[in-house]
């Protein structure tokens, strides 16, 4: 039986369909489900092996990227989600999905929290995705170096760079202080970094690091490794014809294959 994947749809999400196609090609059984159907109880998180939060502009991102969808998750589904994450099921947030996971406190989980206020209290977040240093939305192709020694074990299967587009206005990963960055690194929570086409560090230089992210960070995972978020769009490079100018073999599909095969 192929692993089942819940692709969450909410008002303004727009990369759900291509994410579903990527999951399918990678051997999964995706279902796009509107958040209102989860709220109505027609579907439940625990029916699925994996949760995918796709890209888009949830609720128009009018109060900051992912902010209102994060509130939805914390208001309506906090217990269900906590259980989903704690039992080790996989969660992947791409672009707006990553922003939502960060704004809700689910990523990077306990590392982001001030214990005084308890779990998921957004006011004490220590990491964020803020506006690009350029100040505007930008779409371009980037190169990603997977951290094969990250705590997310499936990343070890990625033996080459991934080349795929970014398309966002608020993808600039920043931390409250150096200690937070050090903790992310020491716990193996850095999942992807922006690099040059030859794999050497971007060192913060545009356009290799497209948005000014601290330490060239493009994606992170939680300390357990089962929740992953990244700004770029591996789902938009799943067959070679989508990337005529990309070096052969750097398909984003491999991330989906790595995650979904680890569910088998």
């Amino acid at each position: 039986m192929k692993p089942s994947i819940l692709i969450l749809h909410a008002s303004g999400i727009n990369r759900d369909q291509e994410a579903a196609r990527a999951c399918e090609l990678a051997g999964g059984r995706p279902e796009i489900v509107h958040i209102n159907r989860l709220r109505a109880g027609e579907r439940a998180f625990d029916q699925y092996d994996m949760l995918l939060l796709a890209g888009g502009f949830s609720y128009g991102d009018a109060l900051g990227a992912g902010t209102r969808l994060a509130l939805d998750l914390n208001t309506y589904f906090q217990d269900q989600l906590q259980e989903f994450v704690e039992c080790g099921k996989l969660v992947l947030g791409i672009c707006n999905g990553f922003q939502t996971l960060v704004k809700s406190g689910i990523l990077p989980g306990r590392l982001a929290q001030d214990t005084e206020h308890g779990a998921n209290y957004a006011g004490t977040r220590r990491v964020t995705l803020t506006e690009n240093d350029l100040g505007s939305f930008e779409c371009r192709w980037v190169n990603l170096l997977p951290n094969r020694s990250a705590v997310a074990g499936y990343l070890a299967k990625l033996d080459d760079l991934i080349t795929c587009p970014v398309a966002h206005g608020e993808g600039n990963f920043q931390v409250k202080d150096k200690a937070t960055l050090a903790a992310l690194e020491s716990e193996g929570c850095i999942a992807f970094r922006y690099v040059r086409a030859d794999g050497s560090p971007a060192d913060g230089e545009r356009p290799h690091n497209p948005n000014g992210s601290a330490a060239d960070i493009a994606g992170i995972c939680n300390p357990a490794g089962n929740v992953l978020g990244l700004m770029p769009h591996p789902e938009d490079h799943i067959v070679p014809v989508q990337g005529v100018d990309a070096p052969a073999g750097r398909l984003g599909l491999r991330l989906f294959e790595a995650m979904i095969s680890s569910l088998g």
Partner: peptide, 13 residues
């Protein structure tokens, strides 16, 4: 570049 020209995953050229 301020326009998303990749969404829907169908951009070939």
């Amino acid at each position: 570049r301020r326009y998303d020209h990749e969404v829907r995953g169908g951009s070939i050229v």
